[in-house]
């Protein structure tokens, strides 16, 4: 496994008014790996991801990218670094086709005219590079795609921009069994092509199916970040629900304080 993380945050704090959502959170993401980010509802998963994506400015803490400290104040800063987030709602335009969606806002042009041929070619190559075989034509309207195909297009759109970090928010939440398998395969392939992938999920089967590392948040604290091969299903569930499991996770004192502070 790679020694230096591609992206690392240390001691991150984030409050919304009187509510402290993230407390001293450390989180590291490695190239070529899938890092699962798990935690109960309200544990701070989305907030952490939005801090990394520049949507929420952090109150305090450090943000390192490729070993150097950087400051990320806006989504533009994050995408400048090569950090792309695929949100749960995907945000695709139903009335546009796959190519048009993938290039939306960053269209290639020939003078004033859109360069459809180049865009179609690049979109096709990107999908082929991810071994996507479920899409009939890149000129299909997104409206006619299944949930899994839409997820695929959203992921391919993120990959198109030479992104280094791809963060996926619950990509399988609304999918059936076969489509979930396809998307997980795609997630794995993203990591195999050198991306640092973060997978937010509630589904332990998905997490263990594709992850190299698992990070568990518990009430705004990072309970543990461990290699997936070193832990069991039951241990992760304990980390999610109690913040600790055996000698893993928060010390009993910290777990209690955290609990007290929140309730």
């Amino acid at each position: 496994m790679t020694a230096t993380p591609l992206l690392e945050v240390r001691g991150i704090n984030k409050s919304f008014g009187p509510v402290q959502v993230l407390r001293d959170v450390d989180f590291a993401i490695y190239p070529g790996e899938v890092t699962a980010l798990v935690g109960d509802n309200g544990a701070g998963k989305s907030t952490l991801v939005k801090c990394i994506g520049g949507i929420h400015p952090i109150d305090s803490g450090e943000y390192h990218f490729e070993g150097t400290p950087v400051s990320v104040h806006s989504p533009r800063d994050a995408s400048g670094l090569g950090v792309e987030i695929v949100y749960q709602d995907l945000a695709l335009c139903d009335n546009l086709d796959i190519v048009q969606n993938m290039f939306l806002g960053r269209e290639r042009r020939n003078g004033l005219v859109l360069d459809e041929v180049t865009m179609e070619q690049l979109a096709t190559e990107t999908l082929a590079g991810l071994s996507v075989r479920t899409v009939k034509s890149v000129r299909q309207l997104v409206a006619s795609l299944s949930g899994g195909q839409r997820q695929t297009v959203a992921i391919a759109k993120a990959v198109l921009w030479n992104s280094k970090v791809v963060i996926l928010d619950e990509p399988t939440a609304a999918l059936g069994v076969a489509q979930t398998a396809q998307v997980l395969e795609l997630v794995r392939r993203l990591a195999d092509t050198g991306h640092a992938v973060v997978l937010i999920s509630h589904n332990m089967n998905d997490v263990f199916a594709v992850s190299d590392r698992i990070a568990a948040l518990y009430l705004g604290r990072m309970a543990a970040q461990v290699k997936a091969s070193d832990v069991t299903y039951a241990q992760i569930v304990e980390l999610i629900t109690a913040g600790r499991s055996g000698d893993l996770g928060l010390t009993p004192a910290v777990a209690d304080i955290t609990n007290g502070a929140q309730s």
Binding site: V117, E120, T124, L130, R139, R189
Partner: peptide, 16 residues
């Protein structure tokens, strides 16, 4: 992992 396959993706050019 399976190798890239573009068999089902519509090619560009004349077919496009």
């Amino acid at each position: 992992m399976t190798r890239p396959s573009v068999a089902d993706i519509e090619p560009v050019g004349p077919a496009g």
